[in-house]
Design a protein around this nucleic acid. Structure first.
Lengths: 337, 337
DNA sequence: CTGAAAGCGCTTACAG
DNA sequence: CTGAAAGCGCTTACAG
């Protein structure tokens, strides 16, 4: 049993299906009473416009593709929430695609988005394959990248101000009196890692501190990697009094490694994260970090896309400031004997 | 500039567009060499089938709607990851909709899913509005509910075995020697809360323990609520030696409240969660909990939907066993003087 | 204000 | 094996 179409309504209303189409879109080109009657009938018959049929003629689908590496990543989930919310307000639907950092899937994702004729795309993939990018660009639909790891390749983006926020965060540690500060990065972090490290480095330089090579280690952006990298950091003869972690997930692992070493945070070592995931409030101790306004960034990306869809092709590269959130995981270093 | 269509290819290949259509779908009804040439051309021209046009005639969209309360909930995100992965394997796309537990949005979601003519729907909304349900059922497309909070209203579902897992979890506490065990529930948890409480109660009964009314409190399923409910629990004269929390998020708040009261976990109080979110491994101490295989459950829901789409309307109510995960947050109660 | 016609990009009997 | 025709459910000039 097919869903009711405008033809079905037309038959019952004794008008042409053109008139029905007009009435349902509130066209002024149709008699007021006729329109009311048509709408009443449509409602009664449970009519629902066929988006496919409409989009075939309008050449728009009112659908956007949202590509994430994996939705199970809390950052991606937060961003997608913001996108979805704003999309909903603008009458757009969201087609979700996990790329899983798998080149084969990435190609399949692009293919799907092309076939579905999405009006635009937002990519929040933390690890976009290089090969992927020209494919997406070929599609000729507006693309907005969020925390893009391949700078300069796309015209439009929403990015957290990594360098500035990191400089502020490292500055906070320095202000507390720390001099031996380690950087625990993400070897897969590409641009983000480079930018956060740059901010970190700047703060140290500004304070006249020199960066010791053995105090720069890299995890994988996840607790496991943070754990392992932190353990390495603790092996050395003189350990740092503070560790600047690439993100909250890494910090989670670092906290664990510190605990396992019988040391205390922040008494023995201060620890910072980045992102301000929900859990950052609930670690022991609560984590000092930089808040990325995930939902707002998602919303901004969507709104940027809206501008582009409206035909305004101004190049847009939004830089969103992070917010320093100071909690219990940082304190002045203990005086050494 | 429109995307290339089969007509464009037909023109260049000197065949009818019917032949192109057949060739591209590997129909045996077309000459082998002609087909090869057509495919070569299509590839060269960057042809991409229009999903809208196809679905208009096939009356299928190869799209499923996935409804969640909010994708920012880690449980929902895990489930959606599993759904998306399996959907991808079956050539289905995922239309994501956040309902936000907002009746107005719920109605808009249903409307959108109807207009898009999704082939099926999976609802993981932890709080599906009552009003929502008949709307969805009206659509005549297969629906699978995951951890459904309105039992018996839908034919098809994938559910965690709440009662059994809770009984095992409470049994673990009892086995450790606990006699004063509190239940910290979720007042919005509906069926899930009722079932988990039931398992809890059964374990106590089986052990000949009686449930003290003041040891049953309710949060809101989030850390804030768990925190507040735990604080209340600690106000009483005799406090419990163990707390069974509705989920990990609640347990997170409970851990905090216990810490704030100057007590230690598990020395003073054992704490358990439910879900085994990623963070459960990283709390201090790591959380004893029940693992819900979120990805697998998502996958099962999708596969159930596939069966339904294939025309098999057998009633399916899958019950997935939870897995008891014992970590450091539970231990034998300290001997009281 | 209204309807008939054309067309969006496909698939699929039907006839050859 | 191939093509012409019809049709999926809409929108939108065009003519009245």
């Amino acid at each position: 049993m097919r869903p009711t179409s405008i033809k079905d309504i037309a038959r019952l209303a004794n008008v042409s299906h053109s008139t029905v189409s007009r009435a349902l879109r509130d066209s002024p080109l149709v008699n007021h009473e006729t329109a009311a009657e048509i709408r009443r009938l449509a409602d009664k018959m449970g009519y629902r416009l066929s988006a496919a049929a409409r989009s075939l003629v309008t050449q728009r689908t009112d659908t956007i593709g949202v590509v994430v590496t994996t939705i199970a990543d809390p950052f991606a989930a937060g961003v997608v929430e913001g996108i979805e919310e704003a999309a909903n307000e603008h009458g757009l639907s969201v087609l979700l695609a996990n790329s899983n950092a798998d080149p084969e899937r990435e190609l399949r994702v692009v293919r799907t988005l092309e076939e579905r004729r999405v009006d635009g795309i937002i990519v929040t993939a933390s690890r976009v394959g290089a090969l992927y990018i020209p494919e997406l660009e070929r599609m000729q639909v507006p693309i907005v990248l969020l925390n893009n790891q391949h700078p300069g390749e796309f015209a439009h983006s929403v990015m957290i101000a990594n360098t500035e926020a990191s400089e502020a965060l490292a500055g906070h540690l320095i202000g507390l009196g720390h001099r031996q500060i380690a950087y625990l990065g993400d070897r897969f972090g590409r641009e983000s890692d480079a930018e956060r490290f740059e901010g970190f480095r700047r703060a140290l330089t500004a304070a006249g501190l020199k960066l010791e090579k053995r105090f720069v280690v890299h995890g994988d952006g996840r607790p496991e990697g943070g754990h392992e990298a932190m353990a390495r950091l603790l092996e050395g003869p003189r350990r740092p009094t503070a560790v600047f972690c690439y993100n909250d997930m890494s910090a989670l692992g670092a906290l664990l490694a510190i605990r396992e070493a019988g040391l205390r945070v922040p008494a023995d070592i201060s620890v910072t994260g980045f992102d301000d995931l929900y859990l950052a409030q609930y670690t022991e101790p609560p984590l000092t970090t930089v808040r990325q306004p995930m939902r707002r960034m998602g919303r901004l990306a969507l709104e940027t896309l809206i501008q582009l869809l409206a035909g305004d092709r101004t190049k847009r590269n939004l830089k969103v400031p992070g917010e320093l959130i100071i909690r219990g995981s940082t304190a002045a270093p203990q005086r050494k004997l």
